[in-house]
Amino acid sequence: MALLEVQDLEIAVRTKGKLLPVVQGVSFDVDDNETLGIVGESGCGKSLTALAIMGLLGGTTVRITGGNIRFDGMDLLTLSDGERRSIMGNRMAMIFQEPMTSLNPVYRIGDQIIENIRQHQKMTNAQARDRAVELLSLVRIPNPSERVDSFPHQMSGGQRQRVMIAMALSCDPKLLIADEPTTALDVTVQKEVLDLMADLQTRMGTAIVLISHDLGVISETCDKVAVMYRGRVVEAAATENLFAELAHPYTRGLLNSIPVVDSDVDWLEAIPGRVPTLEEELTGCAFHPRCALVTKLCATSVPQETEYKPGHSVRCHFSGKVAP
C-alpha cells in the first residue's frame, strides 16, 4: 500500500449559491522516497488538491465533495479535527509558493520553527532550539546559531524558503507537499532549493508531492508526473515514460511552449486560447476548444481514463495520434 493514496477526489467551490466542481475524479498515489510532480496551468486545481491533502481548504466556500484520501493507512477525511491537526506539520508538512509572506513577520524564525517542533514533540524550549539550529544548518543557512534569532524581514527570499523547508522537516515528515516552492525565486536560487529538497529526500526518505507549472522543474526532480487540466488528471506516467511519449495534446502543448536554447525555431509554439473559467459550461473534453486534433466526438463525450502504455494513463479520445 502506498503512503498517500488519493482516489476520485472531488472539490467544489460555492459561488452565488451554486456548487461548481473545480477538481474532478483526481486519483494518484505516492510511495515513500518517491516524488510525484503535479503540473498544469494556473486554475487547473493543482493547488486545491494539495491543500485538500494537507487539510487546509479554508472555510465553507471550498470543500471536498467526494472521493477519499488515505495517508499511512488512515482515511484522512473521516478523522476528527484534533486527529487531523496531530498529523499536520508532523507526519505531513507543506511549503508554499510565497516565501516572502509565509513566515510570521513579528516572530523570530527560530521561534517559529520551535513552535512547530513543540506542537508535536515533547521537548524543552532549549532542546527545540538546538534542533532548530541543527535544521537551519541542514538547509544550509550560514551561521545558523546566530540566524536562528533573525526576523523574517532580515532574510532573502531564498533563505526564507529554506527556513520554511527547515520548519516543514522539523518533525521528520513522511510526506512533504511543496506547492510551487521555487516560483517566486530567482533561477539560480530555484536550483539550490530544488537540489536541497532532492538531497534531503535521499537522506530522510521523505515522499514529496511537488506542484509546479514548470515542466522543466518537474522533469528534473520527479519520479512520476500527473498533468492536470481544468480539474482533471489528463495524463499520468513515470517521468521517463511521459517525456519519451507524450500521449495527450495538452502535455505536448506545454512542452512545446518551453524555449530550447540550441534550437533554430524562431517562434515558440503556444497553446491557443486559455483555461476556461469555472462558470463556462463545457461539454465533452475540457481541452477541446484549444485542441488541434478536435473532432465532434471531443465536444460531446468526456474521454475516460485509458491505459496508453502500461503505467501510462491518459484521458484523450485520440491519445495514440499525438506521439512524435
Binding site: M54, L56, R84, R85, S86, I87, M88, G89, N90, A93, M94, F96, E98, T101, S102, L103, N104, P105, E115, N116, Q119, H120, M164, M167
Partner: peptide
C-alpha cells in the same frame, strides 16, 4: 487572509 496564517495552520496548531 495573510499567507503566514496558513503556515501557522499547517503546523497543526489549535
Amino acid at each position: 487572509r495573510e499567507d503566514h496564517v496558513r503556515t501557522a495552520r499547517a503546523k497543526g496548531l489549535h
